[in-house]
């Protein structure tokens, strides 16, 4: 009885979430903003990279990359705190 109620609730919630996710905009065609045309038209001339993805990641949105590198550093620190008994100095 409990497993039946759990299964029905899960199915209803899953179908509601799926309906919301599909009906926001047509699947496969994201809405256009003004930034896409600016990056494609001016990206190669201003930054000098042939790869627009790298120029967006490291030049136009460089602070996000800085935060991501800091998160990787914090993850390494966390692993050291759990496993670092045998490292000399601890």
């Amino acid at each position: 009885m409990r497993k039946g109620i759990k299964a029905v609730t899960l199915a209803v919630l899953f179908s509601l979430f799926l309906l919301t996710a599909v009906s926001v905009h047509p699947f496969g065609r994201p809405p256009e903003t003004g930034m896409d045309d600016y990056f494609i038209l001016n990206g190669q001339e201003q930054t000098g990279c042939n790869n627009i993805v790298t120029s967006v990641v490291f030049d136009y949105r460089g602070i996000d990359t800085l935060i991501e590198a800091a998160v990787l550093f914090a993850a390494v620190m966390g692993v050291f705190m759990v496993f670092g008994r045998d490292v000399n100095g601890w």
Binding site: T47, C49, T54, F58
Partner: peptide
């Protein structure tokens, strides 16, 4: 080419 991006890479 590329400016600062190869150094940051």
């Amino acid at each position: 080419t590329g400016g600062v991006t190869p150094l940051m890479n």
